[in-house]
């Protein structure tokens, strides 16, 4: 029995996975379904591999990764002497898992600092959903019984501070702010001290959106990190890179450059409630070893979930399993 049959035996699991269902009928018509492709192909040939390639590329999986993937698939087919297209089903899924897991056990849980303050930094290019994800995560952590504080480290974009304040109100946690235009490091410095004073469990730090090719803005991140390391010595903290699922190949660049500037420990993949599949994160994991930690599935306060590779792959090929 293939891993997927196993996976989706239980109804709840399938329902939960439905949340990951990407795309609606209306827009899906433009997209070839994997199932259709496999059942309609008479034999495994170049035309079929082309079709598969199309499906992966349409999901924004990195081009190099797709090429590698198809190659591996080819080898497997000749190695196992597979002839019926439909038999590719399990192989594709298994290979997708391999691609993501790479034989590791990935623990994407937040690494809490049991003896004191846990800090989480959110970074990313403009408009990906950093501030919103912070709001949602604050809610989630509070639900889990933690005390939470927010730091308005985006002192640049108009309205950013108020945006975070509103999220603070919604969640019911305090937000440390300074005037617009202040040094973001100093906001985070203040917040760390305030959080320590109030014995807060988790401090979530917002930062301004920045394009990864802006050298000065990337240096600013460096300064923020130095501040954190100075104020919280010998403490591990998470740096999440927030990536919008509609992002194409540039996502890989984003991950590369942000990883150099700040030690990215995981990705928050947002806007998966749209029709984009965010496949670039597979390339990011494959090439840069950065795992996905959370997914954003909407604009509501509850729309943040731990990343689950099984559900994600299910969503990637939703059509496949109907």
């Amino acid at each position: 029995m293939g891993i997927f049959q196993k996976l989706f035996q239980s109804k709840e699991q399938k329902l939960k996975a439905q949340k990951y269902r990407l795309g609606m009928e209306k827009t899906r018509k433009s997209m070839s379904s994997l199932k259709e492709v496999l059942t309609n192909s008479k034999k495994i040939d170049e035309a079929l591999f082309d079709k598969l390639e199309e499906i992966f590329i349409m999901a924004d999986i990195g081009i190099d990764t797709v090429v590698l993937f198809i190659d591996a698939l080819r080898k497997e087919v000749s190695h196992l002497k597979i002839e019926k297209p439909i038999d590719l089903e399990n192989i594709i899924v298994d290979k997708m898992f391999d691609l993501y897991l790479k034989g590791d056990i990935i623990d994407t849980n937040i690494r809490f600092n049991d003896s004191g303050l846990t800090l989480i930094l959110f970074v990313g290019v403009n408009g990906t959903g950093k501030t919103t994800s912070i709001g949602k995560m604050a809610y989630k952590l509070k639900q889990e019984g933690k005390t939470v504080m927010l730091a308005a480290g985006d002192t640049f974009r108009a309205g950013a501070i108020n945006q975070l304040k509103i999220w603070g109100d919604r969640v019911g946690c305090s937000v440390i702010t300074k005037a617009e235009g202040s040094d973001p490091s100093s906001v985070i410095y203040d917040a760390i001290h305030e959080a320590k004073k109030q014995n807060i469990d988790v401090l979530l730090c917002d930062t301004a959106g920045r394009l990864q090719n802006k050298v000065n803005l990337m240096k600013e991140l460096d300064k923020i990190n130095r501040t954190i390391k100075r104020e919280l010595p010998n403490t591990i903290y998470e740096s999440y890179l927030v990536i919008d699922a509609t992002t194409g190949q540039n996502g890989l660049n984003q991950a590369k450059v942000f990883k150099e500037a700040t030690d990215i420990s995981g990705i928050v993949l947002t806007k998966l409630d749209g029709t984009a599949k965010g496949g670039i994160v597979l390339a990011i994991r494959n090439e840069l070893n950065i795992p996905i930690s959370f997914v954003g599935l909407g604009e509501k306060i509850t729309d943040l979930d731990y990343f689950d590779i099984e559900n994600y792959i299910y969503g990637l090929f939703a059509d496949f399993f109907e």
């Binding site: 795309g23 209306k26 827009t27 433009s30 590329i57 349409m58 999901a59 924004d60 290019v125 408009g127 919008d244 509609t246 992002t247 194409g248 190949q249 540039n250 996502g251 749209g274 029709t275 984009a276 599949k277 670039i280």
Partner: peptide, 15 residues
């Protein structure tokens, strides 16, 4: 439209 948009640009703009 965000210039970084991937394959989904078609779905979005058509819709």
């Amino acid at each position: 439209v965000d210039a970084m948009t991937g394959q989904d640009a078609v779905n979005v703009s058509m819709a």
